[in-house]
Simulated scan of single mutants.
Amino acid sequence: MNFRVYVLAVSAFVVGMVELIIGGILPLIAEDLNVSVAAAGQLITVFALIFAISGPVLLSLTSKIERKRLYMSSLAVFFFANLFAFVSPNFETLIVARVVTAMSAALIIVLSLTIAPKIVEPAYRSRSIGIITMGVSSALVLGVPIGVLVGDMLGWRMLFLLIAMLTLVAGVIIFYFLEPIKPDHVTSLRQQIASLKSKKIFSAHIVTLLILAGHYTLYGYFAPFLQTTMGLEPFWVSVAFFVFGISAVSGGGVGGWMTDRFGPQRTVVSFIILFAIVLFLLPLSTYSSVLFPLALVIWGMLSWSIAPAQQSYLIQTAPETSDIQQSVNTSALQFGIATGSGFGGLVVQQSSVETTAWAGSVLVILALGFALYSFRKPAGKAAPLGQS
């Protein structure tokens, strides 16, 4: 495997980490900037929403720019945006910094996914994409415990400075080791939208959106959830997030194995049902030092184990537009994070942080309905790529 793929994966990890790294330190940000925890949680919502929209849009708008130069420019914007967040004097400024960070991060992640298969031999293309994906998923699930530890010791602002410095290191390495890459054909936005005319495909993307929305209704506010329900100190909050993160990373492998063995449809339905049950029972398990760790591990594994089954289902259903569907499904994932974080904030404001798990369970049950609808819908002929 070309070592430059691992360099891109490290870069993707650093960039991906900025999305949720503040999830565990929302109380610190809220207190420092004099806003509510629910308002601070919108920092996650805004990031995910901008990320979801920016990825396909920016990739189409920059389709004629040489890839290495575009990558380096995106890293530079990402670097300065994090410095801007580090010195932000108020909540409004931090929101602006998060918007710019999300736009540059979306382009960096998409570029990493498209560059990696071009710098390896054909036999390693799928594996190279998997390595980049692992870097992103690891950042999403491990960013929070890192944020809790660093934020508790050095303050929440130091997190953005740390990410900026790591971005600088990644940029230097990529500058010296990544060769210039000519731009390739990029699917236009019209073509991507045209591929969603199939109700079977569109509802499958809604499944991803609702699952992630249900998950992040709780996960986006999991730090205050732990503090409220169990009275945990920051160190133990970090431990809980770390256990969740390890479980989530391993869940991807479990989901892939289950999909190969039982097929994507059975795997999706089984995991969605289990996911809804675990979310519903999680608040009840906080009263037991034995049941809660078990529920936490199962929740973590299920949170990312559905992704391989969803991706396999999309490839089987629309093989002629599978690349487009993977891109759209990534945006659906980010829309889910934005929806869940925003919905969780409303639940916290209107009810309590404890009820976020039950509210999330309801969204996951809705995802089950869309999954069954998609599976039963006959496959139609996908629109050709040149048509809209």
Results as ranks from 00 to 15, higher is better:
Asn2Met: 10
Asn2Lys: 09
Tyr6Ala: 11
Val10Cys: 13
Leu28Cys: 00
Leu28Tyr: 05
Leu28Lys: 01
Leu49Lys: 03
Ala52Thr: 04
Ser63His: 14
Glu66Cys: 04
Glu66Tyr: 07
Phe80Tyr: 09
Val87Met: 11
Val87Ile: 15
Arg98Lys: 12
Ala105Asp: 13
Ile108Asp: 03
Lys118Trp: 00
Ile119Asp: 01
Val120Ile: 06
Glu121Gln: 14
Tyr124Leu: 13
Arg125Tyr: 01
Arg125Met: 09
Arg127Gly: 01
Ser128Asn: 08
Gly130Phe: 01
Ile146Asn: 04
Arg157Gly: 03
Phe160Glu: 08
Leu166Arg: 05
Ile174Thr: 13
Phe177Gly: 03
Val186Ala: 10
Thr187Met: 11
Lys197Ala: 03
Ser198His: 01
Lys200Gln: 15
Ile201Gln: 10
His205Tyr: 03
Gly220Trp: 05
Gly220Ile: 04
Thr228Gly: 00
Trp236Leu: 13
Val243Gly: 08
Gly245Val: 09
Ser250Asp: 00
Gly251Ala: 08
Gly256Tyr: 10
Asp260Leu: 03
Gly263Lys: 05
Arg266Lys: 13
Val268Ile: 15
Ser270Lys: 02
Ile273Pro: 02
Leu281Ser: 08
Ser288Asp: 06
Leu296Thr: 13
Ser303Asp: 10
Asp323Gly: 07
Ser327Phe: 00
Val328Thr: 12
Asn329Ser: 15
Thr330Leu: 15
Thr339Glu: 01
Gly344Leu: 05
Ala357Asp: 06
Gly360Asp: 11
Ile365Ser: 10
Ile365Arg: 02
Leu372Lys: 13
Arg376His: 10
Pro378His: 11
Ala379Val: 15
Gln387Ala: 09
